[in-house]
Amino acid sequence: MQTWLKTFYRTAPATLLITGACIVLWIIAAIQARSLTSVFSNSELVHTMMVWGPAFEITHHWWTPLTYAFMHLDIGHLTVNMIMLLLIGREVERHFGTKLFVALYISAAISSGLLILTLDFMAPTAGASGALFALMVLLISVYRSRGADLRAPTVLVVVNVVYTFITTGVSLWGHLGGLFAGVILALCVGRKAPAIHWVGIIGLPIAAYLLYTALGM
């Protein structure tokens, strides 16, 4: 295990650190809630970190469009998302480099969080799924740049989109926001000019915030 962690850290340190942060924060929330399955309703940390329209507007929890992506609602939610993050994040980080990967992850998380506020204002939401949807799209870009078969990452995206529409209790706009963010970011980082990379990374959450101010509650 120790050897695996060292190897993983050398190749994808940000992915490992983000995963570790999510696990630690969830453990704290579970201890507060004294539960593995009802963390949402009984943890102050969850309430502080989740994205929710009234908290964002009334109590000025301005940080929540980012922090919600580091909090999960139960052990199953955490486990599935962290496995996906480890598998997908490692490939994306190795391809783009740690600095760009972190920027892409944060941009996608904030953008999907703001879309939740815009289109599902009253839905309290937490989880890395929005950022993970963006990473799935970016994984297609990674495969394409390598000249690899695109079927596997494409099927992964399609299956998760279908899952979003047929399953209750998931954040529709968080998932679709991450999907849309991933498409925009992939188009930007697919260009050779680094300036275009950063225009997309910085411009996307700004555009999402402007949409929120125009259409939000």
Rank of each mutant, 00 (worst) to 15 (best):
E44D: 13
E57Q: 09
I75A: 12
V24Q: 07
F56D: 00
P13R: 03
H47L: 12
L78W: 05
M84G: 14
S38A: 15
H60D: 09
E57F: 05
Y9Q: 08
S38R: 12
T19H: 07
A21S: 14
I31Y: 14
A69T: 00
F70T: 06
Q32L: 05
R34W: 09
A30H: 00
A14D: 01
H60N: 12
F56A: 10
A12F: 00
Y68R: 06
I75C: 12
W62D: 11
I18A: 02
H77Y: 03
A30C: 04
G20N: 06
W26Q: 00
F8L: 14
Y68H: 12
F40A: 10
G53L: 01
N81Q: 14
H47M: 12
F8R: 09
Y68E: 00
A14P: 11
T59D: 13
L66A: 02
T64L: 04
S35G: 01
H60K: 14
W62C: 07
V24W: 04
H61Q: 13
P13S: 01
L17E: 14
M84V: 15
G76F: 13
R34S: 10
T37C: 06
R10N: 13
I83Y: 07
H77A: 12
L45Q: 08
A55W: 08
H61S: 08
T79L: 15
V80G: 09
T64F: 07
V39L: 03
T67P: 06
A21F: 13
V39C: 03
Q32S: 04
G20R: 06
R10I: 09
N42P: 08
H47G: 14
T11R: 11
Y68F: 14
F70V: 05
R10Q: 15
I58L: 15
W62M: 13
V51P: 05
L73K: 02
Q32V: 04
W26L: 01
F8K: 07
A12W: 00
P65F: 06
I28H: 09
L17K: 10
W26S: 07
N42L: 04
P54M: 02
A69Q: 03
A33L: 01
R10D: 14
T59V: 10
T37G: 10
L78Y: 08
T59K: 06
Y9V: 04
L45G: 00
M50K: 02
L16W: 05
T11F: 09
T67H: 03
A69M: 04
L16F: 10
L73I: 12
V46N: 01
T15P: 01
E57N: 12
P54S: 07
D74G: 01
Q32I: 08
T59H: 14
